[in-house]
């Protein structure tokens, strides 16, 4: 059976900020869904399926996704679903739902706040409860062990990682939806102490609050989803070659490859993970990486992946023949999604 052509008809985000205290869940969702529908030129009544991504541990309250629905105007009752994951996986569910053929428009959003509690502690709780979580290992320590493997195998250097950080934060400062970052030159950054050797503060993601929303539509124009796929690797970091991401490579192949792609938005919270993804996806120097500043410059939990797909769609709207959006989940790039968008 031929797949139905699905387009990104609309995209909106709240600016990623260190603190969005003034917004509750419903208010975040109300604003981004209204803006994304306006961007698509559609009404709420046009939406046939709604799917969201969020995490109760991040928001600090049970059923926070159910409260967020108050922002939708869900009356009369709507068809709705939720994933306890980044909104990128909600987008995947909506893409599959649109293939059923009975509805043509899907509304997808993700929301999250880093400011309420400790996203690091939540990431520790996401680990295997038998052999990893009882050790209390923090995500920065995990990423540092991955970065050391990468450096000691000659794939990168601490100086190259500092340059990645500088580029991301410079680009982030040009993006009104990323928080302001102090810019420093790479040499100065290398004088900073390690947070988790060999990673320094500039190698870590800037954790933010935010929300984003994508409107998918069958037909009707806008960047077309040429291919989308997600693949997962073993959870245990010690079972995988951490200097690459086998599942990212396979997901790209399953999504039909990166032919014609000139912009890639990669969900790489740590500088070292950008190096791994560029290699795993075989992206050449002709591909612009993370013009938005990426998830390194604005890492909102449950949002940064969906925003990568939205930013890739904006790149296509702005003239790129094709762009790639990537989202990740799980420790050390365990689970990866690739969404390749192209101009009609």
């Amino acid at each position: 059976m031929a797949l139905r052509d699905v387009h990104v008809a609309g995209f909106a985000q709240l600016p990623n900020r260190m603190n969005l205290d003034d917004y509750d869940e419903a208010e975040m969702v109300q604003e981004i869904t209204a803006k994304a529908l306006a961007d698509a030129g559609l009404e709420r009544s046009d939406v046939g399926f709604t799917c969201s991504g969020s995490n109760d541990y991040v928001m600090g309250r049970p059923f926070s996704f159910a409260m967020a629905i108050d922002g939708l105007g869900a009356w009369p009752p709507i068809r709705e679903s939720h994933v306890e994951m980044d909104g990128a996986w909600a987008l995947y569910e909506a893409y599959v739902r649109l293939q059923h053929g009975d509805v043509d428009v899907a509304l997808v959003y993700g929301f999250g706040k880093s400011s309420l509690g400790s996203v690091d502690a939540v990431h520790t709780l996401e680990l295997d409860p038998y052999s990893l979580a009882p050790l209390g290992v923090d995500p920065h320590a995990m990423a540092a062990m991955q970065a050391r493997l990468l450096i000691e195998s000659g794939e990168t250097t601490e100086a190259k990682l500092a340059h990645i950080s500088c580029r991301s934060r410079r680009d982030g400062n040009k993006n009104p939806n990323a928080p302001h970052a102090d810019e420093a030159d790479a040499d100065a950054l290398l004088a900073d102490p390690y947070v988790r050797e060999p990673l320094r503060a500039h190698d870590l993601p800037v954790r933010t609050d935010g929300a984003s929303c994508v409107v998918l539509r069958v037909g009707g124009g806008g960047p077309r989803i040429r291919g989308i796929a997600h693949i997962i690797d073993a959870h245990q970091p010690g079972f995988r070659d951490l200097t690459t991401s086998a599942s990212a490579t396979k997901a790209l192949a399953a999504a039909g490859g990166a032919g014609g792609v000139t912009v890639a938005e990669l969900h790489a919270p740590y500088t070292s993970q950008e190096v791994i993804l560029i290699k795993a996806l075989g992206l050449g120097e002709d591909v612009t990486i993370n013009p938005s500043g990426g998830a390194h410059a604005a890492c909102t939990p449950m949002v940064a992946g969906l925003t990568r797909i939205g930013e890739a769609a904006l790149a296509v709207r702005n003239g790129a023949p094709a762009a790639l959006g990537h989202a990740t989940s799980g420790p050390l790039l365990q689970h990866n999604m690739i969404c390749v968008l192209e101009a009609e």
Binding site: P134, G136, D138, A144, M145, L149, R196, E197
Partner: peptide
Amino acid sequence: LTWTWIDAPLRDHPVQVPFAF
């Protein structure tokens, strides 16, 4: 195979003096 150094252990870490994961 790889490691990182923890100068100031967190409350939930298994060792409460400087150590390596």
